[in-house]
């Protein structure tokens, strides 16, 4: 019911993580682990394609705040696109939009990254 899957690709030095499923604590941790692994290999720009994630909880999103924090230490950046309206609203309420970027599409995200 809540299997969380990721697909990772890299495009023009941007790591794109496509997610599928419920972004809860386990999902958030999976995204965090991918980001840390790629950061250790030198990546600094990360986009999360949330097209397959229609449901989140605040614990999963809180782990993204840890990703933002880690990226700040290396002057990196994080963005998201293809967000369901309630996911986008949740990110705004929690303030993630102040420290990371929300885009409508991959094209608009890559244009600014």
């Amino acid at each position: 019911m809540s299997d969380f899957k990721t697909l990772v690709k890299e495009l023009n030095e941007v790591v794109i993580i496509e997610t599928e499923g419920y972004l809860n604590n386990e999902g958030g941790q999976k995204v965090y682990d991918i980001c840390i692994e790629k950061m250790n290999l030198g990546s600094r720009k990360f986009l999360i394609n949330l097209t397959g994630t229609k449901v989140v909880n605040s614990i999963g999103v809180s782990i993204l705040i840890e990703v933002i924090e880690k990226l700040q230490e290396v002057e990196g950046k994080l963005g998201y696109y293809n967000m369901a309206p309630i996911v986008e609203k949740t990110f705004h309420i929690m303030g993630l939009s102040k420290y990371s970027s929300l885009y409508k599409t991959e094209e608009s995200a890559l244009a600014e990254f």
Binding site: S62, I63, T90, I93, M94
Partner: peptide, 8 residues
């Protein structure tokens, strides 16, 4: 980083 439930 947690503790957002009531606010949401």
């Amino acid at each position: 980083k947690r503790g957002w439930g009531l606010q949401l």
